[in-house]
């Protein structure tokens, strides 16, 4: 059985205290909230942390409210709350749906939006015990210098397996980040880098404090599809959010759209559908979009199931997503 390595846990009650602790401990500090992703990774030793700063008592992170045309969701709001909130279901149902597909009821009770945004990247060469990792000499993300997924590759390609992120990007959501210099706001997609070792584009003294989700207009339709081996308690192996905006007054003609594909690498891939503007939203479009996605997306051997199967599956999920958006 794997044991947790010793660490110190501190439980600040305000964002100010959190920032202070993060800058004091700098190198060996980790943020913990629900702990559902961090604790297993600490046990595997794929993440190391001497000091854990817990966000559980920071009440200012737990607000969920509607403000003008946005839904503002604090980083500390639980996944269960988002999935079952009447406010979220009524204004951005696709987000409630996607978050409701994360892991299990227990994990959704514990896990938070901030944790799902900052989920560590996953790879079959990383999510292993230290003993197994040492048998192949580690990798770019764990005590080694090679990538086993892309031989010769210099950037880690571990996959972002968040269910909420593709949907938030499709919705055009932003995140607010706080650091010693104050607050800044960036689009969700800019939170991720191309490097699976340091895939969150934050410095160690910054924290995601909330997401700002635009409430979709009447001519916007969005859906999320997840394929995993089990229907529950599983990370997605294929995930895709599809957004279609129709021309006002012509619900079957495309104005704009985008497809956001997860689990390829550390960054979600965003494909814009502006080249299909003016075309009817029908079966032919479903095939065209699936073709575009297939050409531009390359699943890697970083997560289970063959790359070929996941590529075919992705095209199928894209078609099904678009069909579900027909009026």
């Amino acid at each position: 059985m794997l044991r947790l390595q010793p660490f110190e846990l501190v439980q600040p009650e305000s964002i100010g205290e959190v920032l202070q602790l993060l800058s004091t401990h700098a190198e060996h500090v980790r943020i913990i909230s629900g702990g559902t992703d961090l604790v297993p990774n600490l046990k595997l030793g794929s993440i190391k942390g001497d000091v854990l700063v817990s966000l559980q008592r920071v009440d200012e992170l737990k607000n969920l409210k509607e403000a003008d045309t946005q839904l503002v969701i604090g980083a500390g709001v639980s996944l269960h709350t988002i999935a079952t909130s009447k406010l979220v279901q009524g204004t951005v149902p696709v987000l409630a749906d996607a978050v409701g597909k994360i892991a299990s009821p227990q994990i959704r009770n514990m896990g938070t939006l901030g944790g799902n945004l900052c989920l560590d990247t996953r790879c079959r060469y990383i999510n292993q015990s230290e003993f197994i990792r040492s048998s192949f000499g580690g990798c770019l993300k764990s005590d080694g210098d090679r990538c086993h997924v892309v031989p010769g590759g210099s950037l880690c390609v571990a996959a972002l397996s968040s269910d909420s992120v593709p949907v938030l990007i499709a919705l055009g959501a932003d995140v607010d980040i706080i650091g010693p210099e104050g607050e800044r706001t960036i689009p969700v997609e800019e939170l991720y880098t191309k490097d699976g070792v340091a895939h969150i584009a934050l410095s160690s003294d910054e924290v995601v404090v909330r997401a700002r989700v635009p409430i979709p207009a009447a001519q916007t339709r969005i859906t999320y599809r997840k394929w995993a081996v089990r229907k529950s308690i599983d990370f997605p192996l294929v995930s895709v959010a599809v957004r279609i905006d129709h021309i006002k007054g012509s619900p079957d003609i495309l104005e704009d759209g985008r497809v956001v594909v997860g689990v390829l690498g550390p960054q979600p891939k965003i494909l814009r559908l502006s080249s299909l503007q003016g075309q009817p939203i029908n079966e032919e479009m479903a095939h065209k979009v699936a073709g575009i996605v297939s050409r531009r997306c390359t699943p890697l051997a970083n997560v289970p199931y063959s790359e070929d199967y996941r590529k075919l599956r992705l095209a199928v999920e894209v078609k099904r997503a678009i069909r579900s958006l027909f009026i």
Binding site: I32, G34, G35, T36, V39, L52, Q106, N109, M110
Partner: peptide
């Protein structure tokens, strides 16, 4: 309901 194995 939570998983007590994941809670420091």
């Amino acid at each position: 309901a939570v998983n007590s194995c994941l809670i420091p």
